[in-house]
C-alpha cells in the first residue's frame, strides 16, 4: 500500500511540475522550418520578440522545429500546429495546401519576392587545401571523388543540389536532357550515403569525415567553416549554380484557430525589414533588400545563377518529373545502381 501511495505522490509531483508549462499567458508561435535555419531563427526570434514588445504587443515566444524540409511539411500535414512554416522550397508548402487544405493555393503571392525574404545557392565544401582538386560540377563525376548530399525525397537542400547539377549539365555546350540525366546518374554513383536532412549530411561530412566534397547550402557551408575551423574546410564556388528561394507563409487554418494571425503575419513581415534582412545576412542568407545586400556584398561570392522557373518550369513540374515516385531520381538512384 505504502509503495503505491509513494508512486502516486511522485506522479502527482511530476505533473505539478509540468503544469506551469501550459499556464503561461503569453503568445506562443510555432515556426516549423527546415534544417539549416536553426541559428538564423534563434537570433531572429529574440529580435522579433523585442521588436513586438516594443510596439506594445504581447510577450511572444517563438518555438522552433527543424528537420528535412519535406519531412517537416509532412508533419504539418499530419497536424503539427505550425503558425508559420519557413521551408526550403515552395513545393513543400504547396503540398501543405494541397494535401491538408491548411493554406490557400495563392499563398506565394501574399508576401513580396515570391514570399522568399532571403535567397541562397548551392556551393561545395571541401577539405582544407582541396586535396581532390574539385573546382566545378564536372569534377564531381570523377570516379575518385566521393560526394555527400542528403536524400532529395526528404530534404529540400538535396533537391536544390540535384537540380543545380542537372542545370549545370543542361547549360554545357551541346547539353540536353539525356546528357543531364547521364551526368546526374554519374554524380549519384559517387554518393556513398544519403542523410534525411541537410544538417545530417553536414555532420556526416565534417564530423564523421566521410566524402571529399559536400554539396551544401551556401549558408550551411559558411557556418560549417566558421563553426568548425577555417583550418579544416574551404568553400569552392562552382561556375554556375541555382538560385534557391526558401519561402515562408503563415498557416491560415492554424493561426485562425489559435487566434495568432496578426502576430504571425507581423513575424514574417519583419523578415523583410532592414533589421530582419541584416540578421539573415549575418547568417549567410543572401538578403533581398538592396541596401543590406550592398553592405554584405563582399561576403557573398559572385556566381552565375539560374532559376527554377526558367530552367525547370517551376517547382511543380520539377517535383513531378524528378522526385515523385518513379521519377528520374528513382530511376537513377537505387540499390545496385
Amino acid at each position: 500500500m505504502k509503495s503505491l501511495k509513494t508512486i502516486a505522490t511522485l506522479a502527482a509531483a511530476v505533473l505539478a511540475l509540468a503544469a506551469p508549462l501550459a499556464a503561461h499567458a503569453e503568445v506562443n508561435l510555432l515556426n516549423v522550418s527546415y534544417d539549416p535555419t536553426r541559428e538564423l531563427y534563434q537570433d531572429y526570434n529574440a529580435a522579433f520578440a523585442k521588436y513586438w514588445k516594443g510596439k506594445g504587443g504581447d510577450t511572444v515566444t517563438v518555438k522552433q522545429s527543424h528537420g528535412g524540409s519535406g519531412k517537416q511539411a509532412r508533419a504539418v500535414i499530419d497536424g503539427l500546429d505550425a503558425d508559420v512554416v519557413t521551408l526550403a522550397l515552395a513545393y513543400d508548402i504547396d503540398e501543405i495546401g494541397e494535401k491538408a487544405k491548411l493554406i490557400p493555393a495563392n499563398w506565394q503571392k501574399r508576401l513580396p519576392h515570391n514570399s522568399s525574404p532571403y535567397t541562397s545557392t548551392i556551393v561545395f565544401l571541401v577539405r582544407k587545401g582541396n586535396p581532390k582538386k574539385v573546382r566545378d560540377w564536372n569534377d564531381l563525376i570523377r570516379p575518385d571523388v566521393k560526394v555527400i548530399t542528403p536524400n532529395p525525397k526528404t530534404s529540400g537542400g538535396a533537391r536544390w543540389n540535384y537540380l543545380a547539377a542537372w542545370g549545370y549539365a543542361l547549360k554545357q555546350k551541346g547539353g540536353n536532357e539525356a546528357k543531364a540525366k547521364e551526368f546526374v546518374t554519374k554524380l549519384f554513383k559517387n554518393v556513398p550515403v544519403l542523410d534525411s536532412g541537410a544538417r545530417g549530411s553536414t555532420t556526416t561530412f565534417v564530423q564523421r569525415g566521410q566524402g571529399d566534397v559536400l554539396l551544401a547550402w551556401e549558408n550551411e557551408a559558411f557556418l560549417a567553416v566558421n563553426e568548425l575551423g577555417k583550418d579544416k574546410f574551404e568553400i569552392v564556388v562552382p561556375s554556375v549554380s541555382i538560385l534557391a528561394e526558401p519561402p515562408v507563409t503563415v498557416v491560415d487554418k492554424v493561426v485562425d484557430r489559435k487566434g495568432t494571425r496578426k502576430v504571425a503575419e507581423e513575424y514574417l513581415k519583419y523578415l523583410y525589414t532592414p533589421a530582419g534582412q541584416e540578421i539573415a545576412a549575418k547568417h549567410y542568407y543572401r538578403p533581398i533588400d538592396k541596401n543590406i545586400a550592398a553592405k554584405y556584398a563582399k561576403v557573398f561570392p559572385k556566381v552565375k545563377l539560374f532559376t527554377i522557373d526558367d530552367t525547370f518550369g517551376g517547382w511543380k513540374a520539377a517535383q513531378k518529373k524528378h522526385f515523385a515516385d518513379g521519377g528520374v531520381f528513382d530511376q537513377i538512384y537505387g540499390p545496385g545502381k
Binding site: 508549462l21 510555432l30 518555438k63 522552433q64 522545429s65 527543424h66 528537420g67 508533419a75 503539427l80
Partner: peptide, 10 residues
Amino acid sequence: SVVSGHIRGA
C-alpha cells in the same frame, strides 16, 4: 521521434 514534431523546449 516520429510523433514528437521536434518542437524545442516542448
